[in-house]
Design a protein around this nucleic acid. Structure first.
Lengths: 334, 334
DNA sequence: GCAATATGTGCAAACGTTTGTATTTTTGCA
DNA sequence: TGCAAAAATACAAACGTTTGCACATATTGC
């Protein structure tokens, strides 16, 4: 019942722990014969290396921590899968923490991960965190940091972000080309790189098309379903006939308001969302939206970690977004 | 840059590491005065306890592992949140692994967690695992095991499951009461307690209502969206006018087939799903389904772990399901 | 005023590895 | 057969804690 240690194996074989250790580590100065012998004995005795002891001695672990706002968002759970796909084969494993968008939970997660001596952290910070303060702790402790999606740029870390600017540009352009005339924007708070960029892309698309930019129809609240519903009413008041939403949940709210008020989408009103949540294709009409390539972001972030960890190279990666054209913004041209 | 250790603190204060350790551990025979002094110095020097060393010495960790098929299922991510809500305040933290429904990934996850010396594991096994074999390893290693949702009953572990039997019974009864006459069943494989129970509940509801049970309209394939679509065609062939689906994705497939073929739901055909995935309320018509109370399951599983860990008590918990009545099975009675 | 008891600290070993250095064994070659 | 070089193995310290025990000092009871 007591777990087998390398000393147990050594004793059973009449050799020393160091030889066993080296044999099991693979690459070393131990004869093929004894290695075979040791390996057989090890599996026979049900040996599992004690990672605690190993890491303590080696001075680093094979664990990387990941902090995300919530794992039940399609985006984040796919990022996680992407990261795992790179990290596991590389011999690392992932411990995942949720910040629930709260600064306090985030701080706690960081402390936990540091105490666990993680080799690195992949983080997308909570919305409550408006400064890099708590993350600074991470780099101060010498832990490799990779930020993704939501980032602070005053930290020594690699970053992986979507090309939110171009994405939003395309999304807005799509609405323009579909013939909508007065296109509003539902954005998130203006502290975050993500929403700032999307807003910029939206504005650029309008100006490039020679259309006026009206601050009155740029809503910067937040991108929840409720806010979408609520702001749709206001947008209609101000004469909008389309909205580019910086999130699918907001777009969902918009569509619900439209249904309740018998406004035809896409006939009378056009909507484009962002994120391609799993429900987007299921709505009626199906929602045209921006795909964030979450899995790729996860993979890139993991790769960025490995690059920093082993080659000391810091990278800033931009992943392009893809417009998924469905029905919610495709009306006949007039 | 090098991390501060208790010895550094001790040296700085002219005392010994043991005193520092005791002071920081809180409960011990060290004077209030020195504790204050030590604590101040510790935070001043940015000390973070090295969990590796601590756990190695203590012989156990404050980590519990959780293995789920995939985290991007609403059900599982909510279970995770529920478990965290109990575990974190209790001083434990959670490391999450995905099996992707594959036996091999599951085995790897188990090995990883064991090597990490987790204090316990909360697991819902992959569909590929049809025997308790790999989980036996866990209890053999003396790791506390809690199984939830999908369980094997030949293991010494606590269990937390939904009351799938009663849930399916209610769901089927709902269809019967709505006036559907020939109600089929879309179930999962018959190896899993989950689907066996749901099927039993379905059958019991029919017999209690004096309705015939026809094996021809019980589909046991799997509960994916594709299978739902595919089996809906067969169900119609066999004259069904309703289906109780053991999963929402299957129900989704059913509804898509119906839409493509202009079959009115719920007018001509009734559907009830299971799981209350986030899209269920968004479908048109909205999907009547069984809520699994995932958060509660997570909490119960975590509590069961704590009970085993500290009191040695093994429990078998059943969590009731709740029928969420929406539109997909509510037609006028005739 | 002295033994008996609390109370607060220090010492040193232990947890299971890894790894630099020392030692032994094997090998190749004259 | 002998000897140096190479290969294989052993020794011992270290990673940062925790903890049983010993020790010193302070407190108490009589």
């Amino acid at each position: 019942m007591a777990k087998t240690t390398i000393s147990d194996i050594a004793k059973a074989l009449g050799i020393t722990p160091s030889t066993v250790s080296r044999a099991l580590a693979g690459n070393s100065r131990v004869s093929e014969a004894t290695r075979m012998m040791i390996e057989r004995k090890a599996s026979e005795m049900g040996y599992e290396r004690n990672l605690l002891a190993s890491s303590l001695r080696k001075g680093f672990t094979d664990t990387v921590g990941m902090i995300v706002p919530r794992i039940n968002r399609q985006f984040f759970s796919n990022v996680i899968s992407g990261a795992e796909a790179i990290l596991n084969p590389a011999g690392f494993n992932l411990i995942i923490c949720q910040s629930h968008e709260r600064r306090e939970d985030e701080r706690r997660a960081i402390a936990t991960l540091i105490r666990n001596q993680v080799a690195g952290m992949l983080v997308s910070h909570s919305l409550e965190s408006t400064s890099s303060e708590s993350l600074r702790e991470v780099v101060d402790q010498g832990v490799v940091l990779v930020q993704f999606d939501r980032i602070f740029d005053d930290l020594e870390s690699s970053t992986v972000v979507n090309d939110n600017f171009s994405g939003a540009y395309e999304a807005t352009k799509h609405l323009i080309e579909a013939g909508y005339h007065r296109i509003g924007h539902l954005g998130g708070d203006d502290q975050s790189n993500v929403y700032i960029e999307r807003r910029r892309g939206y504005i650029k698309a309008l100006t490039d098309a020679g259309m006026a930019v009206d601050e009155d129809i740029i809503f910067g609240d937040s991108i929840t379903r409720d806010k979408g519903f609520y702001n749709m009413a206001k947008a209609l008041d101000k004469g909008c006939d389309a909205l580019y939403c910086a999130g699918d949940y907001a777009a969902l709210g918009v569509m619900e308001y439209a249904r309740h008020n018998h406004i035809d989408i896409p006939g009378q009103f056009g909507v484009v969302g962002t994120a391609n949540e799993n429900f987007a294709e299921l709505l009626v009409p199906s929602l045209t939206t921006l795909e964030q390539n979450a899995t790729e972001i996860g993979q890139r972030a993991a790769q960025a970690f490995l690059d920093m960890r082993f080659n000391g190279v810091v990278s800033n990666i931009v992943v392009s977004m893809k417009l998924i054209v469905r029905d919610s913004a495709s009306r006949q041209h007039k």
